[in-house]
């Protein structure tokens, strides 16, 4: 499907990064090669990979969603898959769930991540040690995180056993259903656990030395701690954190392994629905799988566009 490029996260870009870039001396440019061409050359390998794998993948998905299945006798191009999608109860039921699974972890991990970064910044010698723990989490695959949540939160899991040993619950079924539940608690927990450190690292990177100077300046002008936080610190890190949050949203809305492992077969998130159709043994279900994948791609694209729009406005305001 079209997920892998979302999983490999590019380093945080946006105003924070470009501010640092602008300070670099101008002799960074190669003599004789125009700056624009030089940048294009440097980007070419990455763009080539993105172009070949991403664009061919998307083209294939769009073509198949329109019914392009030359391996099946009697195939024809049509919009049937898209029409079928809007009447499919699995798709209709998944919209609310997908929105919930994407929005709640994004907001929670942004709030927790920024808070953690602000606290870690205040730490003395143990700062590197603590931020190291946060970074270690980044290396854990989502799949492993989801399995850990299953072992921890399911009705036969560790918490349930502890609760049984402590005499709170008699049977596994007496423990609240946190996995395979209607709300998606375990999915949200898995994403918050995984994405909070990601946004913490981004916020820590944005809280560079320049922020200290700005805060000191605000302090000398008589700003109280709360005022410094709201008017100086948060505006400086917002563009970078917002960029990270968009990635988190696009990822949580578009990935399937965590909701597949921890969620229900129905209602399931959009990516799980796409996978269910994709894995259907009847190949005529393939166009609808691709139609759902195309819709996910378009939604993710819209999110990035919205971010670029907002980030542009934020950057202008901070100048």
């Amino acid at each position: 499907m079209t997920q892998p490029e979302l999983r490999t996260r590019p380093p945080p870009t946006g105003p924070a990064a470009t501010t640092r870039g602008r300070r670099r001396p101008a002799n960074h440019r190669r003599r004789g090669v125009p700056r624009g061409l030089w940048i294009a050359l440097l980007l070419a390998p990455a763009l080539l990979v993105v172009g070949v794998f991403f664009l061919t993948g998307i083209t294939q998905a769009v073509a198949q969603s329109l019914g392009y299945q030359p391996f099946l006798p009697g195939w024809r191009l049509s919009l049937d898959a898209y029409q079928g999608m809007f009447t499919d109860p699995a798709v209709r039921a998944s919209l609310l769930l997908t929105a919930r699974i994407a929005i709640i972890p994004t907001v929670l991990s942004a709030v927790l991540g920024v808070s953690a970064a602000l606290l870690i910044r205040r730490l003395g010698r143990s700062r590197n040690w603590v931020s190291g723990i946060f970074q270690a989490n980044l290396a854990v695959p989502h799949l492993v995180g989801a399995l850990c949540m299953l072992l921890l939160l399911s009705q036969g899991g560790l918490l349930s056993r502890v609760s049984h040993a402590a005499g709170f619950t008699d049977t596994p079924a007496a423990f609240p259903a946190l996995t395979g539940d209607e709300f998606g608690w375990a999915i949200i927990a898995a994403y918050v656990w995984k994405e909070t450190p990601f946004l913490t690292v981004i916020a820590l990177a944005a809280l560079g030395r320049g922020v200290d100077d700005l805060e000191n300046a605000a302090r000398s002008l008589g700003a109280r701690p709360w005022q410094r936080l709201v008017h100086v610190t948060l505006p400086v890190i917002t563009p970078a954190v917002a960029g990270g949050a968009v990635l988190v949203f696009a990822f949580t809305a578009g990935s399937y392994e965590v909701p597949y492992l921890l969620g229900r077969p129905f209602p399931a998130t959009l990516p799980v629905v796409a996978l269910q159709h994709y894995n259907a043994t009847d190949l005529t279900a393939r166009p609808e799988a691709m139609a759902v994948a195309v819709v996910i791609t378009v939604l993710s694209g819209l999110m990035v566009a919205a971010y670029l729009f907002i980030a542009g406005r934020l950057a202008r305001r901070s100048l």
Binding site: A177, G180, D181, E182, Y260, R264, P265, F266
Partner: peptide, 9 residues
């Protein structure tokens, strides 16, 4: 299991 509200995957 789970009152048939859901089934294992």
């Amino acid at each position: 299991w789970r009152g048939g509200q859901t089934y294992p995957q």
